[in-house]
């Protein structure tokens, strides 16, 4: 861990100023990911701006037809909030599919958006990694890539975004509220995380001088027909090999609006709107689901160890859509898959 200075600004405005004055600063809240990465010598900030106690960011509030979750709301508080559970159970379920109670107690909504990949090479400074050291190379492509991406990869990086929460937020079309020196702006979830391209060191479109204020969820539409299905290498406390957030509007057996986002397969939660459109007006049916899965996985490409993810993702999409259509969402405590 390198030497760093530390500041705990008293207001959002101060925090933004603090950040602007220190280009190599990092924002810290729960610290569940950043502190690890600093110990591993992967992140080497010279200055930490602790936003953990900023006023006004710890609330869950009504926002028009939707709900606004402050950046400092813990993952636990968000998952167990009655309004979230009732109106956005997909989000609650996705959060509870991740990490452990201890981590969820410490981790924040904003921090979860910014957590970094679990690629083994990114975590090991003794190896090259374009995300950690731009230009150093990507040994993962020909190396141990079991947990890595099959969609949206680039020759420079095949990392995945590890969050469960973000997969649900993507499916729900949440909007990330941020603030910087030029004031506030909104970033739709679809644009918040990036694909690696030739700048894999950049995970998101958040500017270095901006901080996250919270996420806004639009009008709830998927409280009945949803699921978060997470497949991993043990039954709990592991990052997703593949996860699927599925949300449907149903009229009897007929599907209305549909949303599907995949986790564990790309550098960002993966959505294919044309595939979602394929469901509209259709009767919930395995064959339809299979066609949708095919469309979502179009162009998916493994790198050896992770080849199986293409088939697994296809199967997971079909199962998740079946669960959502039936209105039998995956339990996050009963490990039997519905």
């Amino acid at each position: 861990m390198n030497r760093f200075s530390y500041a705990r600004p008293g207001s959002v405005a101060d925090a933004v100023r603090e950040l602007a004055g220190h280009p190599a600063a990092k924002v810290i809240a729960g610290g569940t990911n950043l502190v690890d990465l600093m110990k591993y010598n992967v992140e080497r900030p010279t200055h930490l701006v602790d936003v953990g106690r900023l006023p006004g960011l710890k609330e869950i509030e009504e926002a028009g037809e939707g709900l606004r979750i402050g950046a400092l709301v813990s993952n636990t508080a968000a998952a167990y909030d009655e309004r979230v559970k009732e109106r956005y159970p997909l989000l609650s379920s996705a959060i509870l599919a991740g990490a452990s109670p201890q981590l969820r107690n410490a981790a924040t909504t904003g921090g979860n958006l910014l957590q970094r990949t679990r690629c083994y090479y990114f975590y090991d400074p003794a190896t090259p990694c374009n995300k950690r050291e731009p230009g150093s190379g990507c040994p993962a492509k020909n190396g141990q890539n079991r947990i890595l991406a099959i969609l949206g990869t680039s020759e420079h990086c095949i990392a995945t975004h590890p969050s469960d929460m973000c997969v649900a937020l993507a499916a729900l079309e949440a909007v990330v509220k941020v603030v910087g020196p030029n004031g506030e702006r909104s970033i739709p979830m679809a644009d918040f995380h990036r694909l690696p391209g030739n700048m894999p060191e950049k995970d998101t479109n958040l500017h270095a001088d901006e901080i996250i204020l919270g996420v806004e969820l639009p009008e709830p539409r998927f409280a009945k027909h949803y699921t978060y299905l997470k497949l991993r290498d043990r039954l709990s406390y592991a990052f997703a090999l593949v996860s699927v957030a599925a949300a449907l509007e149903m009229d009897g057996d007929t599907i209305g609006e549909a949303r599907i986002a995949l986790g564990g397969v790309a550098h960002k939660p993966w959505r294919v709107e044309e595939a979602e459109m394929m469901l509209r007006g259709k009767t919930a049916d395995r064959r339809v689901f299979a066609a949708v899965a095919e469309r979502i996985l179009e162009g998916a490409q493994g790198f050896g160890h992770n080849d199986f993810k293409v088939d697994l993702a296809r199967r997971a999409v079909i199962r998740a859509l079946s669960q959502a259509a039936r209105g039998t969402p995956q339990s996050q405590t009963d490990k039997r898959i519905q």
């Binding site: 190896t127 079991r146 043990r234």
Partner: peptide, 29 residues
């Protein structure tokens, strides 16, 4: 069902060298 130290033979190195990625059974298992 779980335990596996994954070596990158190009680098000659075990890569999943932490217990987030080297899986041992948890209560649910």
């Amino acid at each position: 069902l779980h335990e596996e130290s994954m070596a990158d033979h190009n680098l000659g190195r075990f890569m999943n060298h932490n217990i987030a990625e080297y899986h041992i059974p948890v209560n649910a298992d």
